[in-house]
Design a protein around this nucleic acid. Sequence first.
DNA 1: CGCTCTATTGATAAACCTCAAATACAGTGG
DNA 2: CCACTGTATTTGAGGTTTATCAATAGAGCG
Lengths: 232, 232
Amino acid sequence: MHSHPSLRESLSRSDIFAGISVDKLTGILNLGHQGAYKTGEALFFEGDPALHFYLVLDGRFKLSKLHENGKEAIVRYINSGEMTAAISAFKKKKYPVTAYAVETSTAVAWDRETMMEMIIHHPEIGINLLGMVIERMDDIQNRYLELQAERVEQRIARALLRIMKQSGRIMEDGILIDFRLSRQDIADYTGTTLFTVSRILSNWEKKRWVRSAREKITIVNPHALVAFSESG
Amino acid sequence: MHSHPSLRESLSRSDIFAGISVDKLTGILNLGHQGAYKTGEALFFEGDPALHFYLVLDGRFKLSKLHENGKEAIVRYINSGEMTAAISAFKKKKYPVTAYAVETSTAVAWDRETMMEMIIHHPEIGINLLGMVIERMDDIQNRYLELQAERVEQRIARALLRIMKQSGRIMEDGILIDFRLSRQDIADYTGTTLFTVSRILSNWEKKRWVRSAREKITIVNPHALVAFSESG
DNA sequence: CGCTCTATTGATAAACCTCAAATACAGTGG
DNA sequence: CCACTGTATTTGAGGTTTATCAATAGAGCG
């Protein structure tokens, strides 16, 4: 079957399926389910019974957790080419995890059993997955440490730099963060309030470190931000 | 080779090697390096060049990260039967991760290559590892959310309950946390200061929720703590 | 019995949240 | 093209939580 050639392209470019031969990829592909998602739509809710492993082909999702007191924490952004898994793939859990599309997006999904089959037949996939998860774990552990050890302003600096690295687009006047990112989003990502984010961004705007509009942020002076984020 | 029978016992009881046949286990064992660690000794520093995957046979370690400003965050405790990996198994990283023995402990270690070999030959191990890492990820993500969304007192309540579940020993007068746990440790685990922890524990002691001595804590009324941790 | 490490407690201050009110902006339908 | 409506954002005032600093007390160890 020679159906999805560009899709197969995406797969072989992803970290997870790197090094898997073309015919194997075709087989893997045929086991997955493709879907399209509009902004705000959920890729999965925690507890989704059927599909558990997702590869983002195009677009971007935000992975967030909702606390019972109403506060939301953005765990990470999942960009195209990246995978994510609903934790319930392995276990039921307390606070719901949800992946919302941040822009129009497409993704492929596999259910748990299929994925396990794939790993059994191609252990490299398991190793790649393991590497990915360990890397993410390291990321969240670092942010956990930063949340404990740093002040809000420093955390926001790091957040912007992280997001910039992943999703920045170079423009003449700086590096534009290439999707709708509100003050509230930044607050949820850094563990503060939209008010505090607003004040800090205003302050940075005066210093010409950033320029911002409604849900759009351009980093004008990344160097200054880096220096600040590292010195506190 | 019929050397370490009790060690093999430990392996087959661990989540990672569950379902692996006895002769395979013997082979796996012979590839690992055993070590003994006194309280305070490091199982690994991040960047340890040789050994990367560790199974705790006996005792307990604390996995912590040190921020450049001197603050320490305890990422989790690793109890006997549990595995942990130095992240540098896959990538170099910024803040050092270190695993310190909290009591006299023993562990087996495998290097990266050996572990990869094992996974290639026994993909179930890869799947088990993946499940373990995803579960830990879920744990740290939950704590990340709680750190953002909850007040100190609530976080300390949850911390004590978590640690109690993992390492509690039932006594006549309550559930004793069975290793040296200082106010500073609790502070590093919950993202606060030893002073605040001390005040809160004193307060709880008045309410008869806990009893505490130097580096020893007994939970007298777990029910009250649970109720408090869930209501805020 | 002195030394060192841990814990307690009080006073003070800083960082940040909360709430309120005003303003700016984007998209929509006429 | 414009008015309208619903968000997003800004900014200020005031309060709360929690960190910081200092000083003291207690526990274990050689």
